[in-house]
């Protein structure tokens, strides 16, 4: 089950864990198509990753557009920002319909996974994205 968190506008300001996020672990989660699933829908600055999806915004430079608190709410439960969003709620285990037995009562990512992914996404700056990704 997911622990409690406080939504503050379009942010969850407080980290979900006491251990700081690890951007290297976060990158591995983002590119893992069984775990983070991110690149099924998003494109991003991950040159070695073929076949990135284009259903959702490009992640290049996302760290310049959104702060960690904004990223946290978008990962935890994007529907709180846009009820029509197709982005899965990565840290939610209730209120879902007909969840498969293997997944029932579980969140897509753990609290620490979320913090690791935030650390990685926050490091993606517009400056780094440069002309390469556009």
């Amino acid at each position: 089950m997911a622990q409690e968190f406080i939504v503050d506008g379009d942010r969850i300001s407080a980290p979900l864990t006491s251990q700081p996020g690890d951007a290297v672990r976060g990158r591995a989660i983002v590119v893992d198509r069984q775990k983070g699933l991110c690149l099924l829908c998003h494109t991003g600055p991950f040159a070695e990753q073929k076949f990135q999806g284009n259903l959702a915004p490009d992640l290049s430079g996302v760290g310049s557009r959104l702060d960690s608190g904004q990223l946290r709410l978008r990962l935890v439960d994007s529907l709180k920002i846009n009820p029509q969003s197709i982005m899965p709620s990565y840290y939610r285990a209730d209120g879902l319909h007909r969840v498969g037995t293997n997944w029932r009562g579980k969140t897509i990512l753990s609290a620490q996974d979320i913090e690791d992914v935030i650390a990685m996404l926050a490091s993606l700056s517009e400056a780094d994205a440069g002309g390469v990704q556009k």
Binding site: L40, F51, I86, V99
Partner: peptide, 21 residues
């Protein structure tokens, strides 16, 4: 439906023609 919380319509009405991976 499901842990990923998608409807059929969200992919096949709203986003057909785009790439999933």
């Amino acid at each position: 439906f499901g842990q990923l919380n998608f409807s059929c319509a969200q992919c096949h009405d709203d986003n057909w023609g785009k790439r999933l991976g």
